[in-house]
Design a binder for these strands. Structure first.
Lengths: 145, 145
DNA sequence: GGCCAGTGGTTGGGCTGTGCAACCATGGAA
DNA sequence: TTCCATGGTTGCACAGCCCAACCACTGGCC
């Protein structure tokens, strides 16, 4: 496969994946949409951040994040703590419940992926993972921070 | 990277990509959403198929495809020809205009991807493309045809 | 102190994409 | 003919998103 075809293929297959992931996500965990899951995961990894940070990281409008966050708080999965240094800021943290749910969903998602990738040699998995990381880390219109 | 971590990484990075692609797509080509573009592209490659085929391939509800197709037809990008062998079937074909628009959008998307992937060695591109194809071709909840 | 631009966040309005369910028309087999 | 399966459309509701307007607070400036 030459480089031009490869680029074309990557573009197409990534798009296909994007749609499937979205389609499958809601069905797997009615309690936690793909968006909610991702935001929750980011909170888990970062150990607390502002809504604005989430918006910047995922290239989402702040209003979108605001509503997502509000829903997560209503669901009791996160809590918003006022920042001592800047009264405008609300720092988002996972609650114990949020941490638990996140863990469950992560595990079941992981299981689904693991099954799907079961027949892949370990080295190919690493290769694939590396490619994705490298791709997403690259600069571009959709660049995160 | 061990297999478990690789699976985890693939899952996370694909998800990030999914969101970014969605976010960036509309802005690039106001005339052709990511969905429309993908469906149009499939039509271009397959050289005509049924709405049901599109739905199965992309794990979309037939009603969704029906509406997308209707919009594409209204825009003059595709046409629906009754199938001679089965009167229920409408075979979808690109129009000349559709082929032209598809070409333009494909080229500009390709350019964006190419730029993003510019510093990748050709062999890595092929590798990445192969991984994606293999992943998407694999069986699973989001299986296509 | 007061003024004002900038920033974090919320809310209102509207659009797109989507699935589900109900429906119609055709095909094909009992 | 009757009945079920299939391709497709339409009504309905909902999620996710953006834009614009808005409020509250910050920090620099007069």
């Amino acid at each position: 496969m030459n480089a031009a075809d490869a680029v074309e293929t990557i573009q197409r297959e990534m798009t296909v994946f994007a749609r499937r992931a979205r389609a499958a996500a809601g069905r797997m965990h009615p309690e936690l949409s793909l968006v909610s899951y991702t935001l929750l995961g980011h909170l888990g990894e970062s150990g607390g951040c502002r809504a604005t940070d989430l918006a910047a990281h995922y290239a989402l409008d702040k209003s979108t994040v605001s509503r997502q966050v509000a829903a997560l708080e209503r669901a009791g999965l996160i809590e918003r703590r006022p920042d001592a240094e800047d009264q405008r800021v609300l720092v988002l943290h996972l609650t114990e419940s949020g941490r638990r749910i996140l863990g469950q969903v992560t595990e079941s998602r992981r299981a689904a992926f693991r099954e799907r990738l079961a027949d892949w040699p370990a080295e190919d998995l690493s290769l694939f993972a590396d490619c994705l990381v490298r791709y997403n880390a690259g600069s571009g219109p959709g660049r995160h921070d």
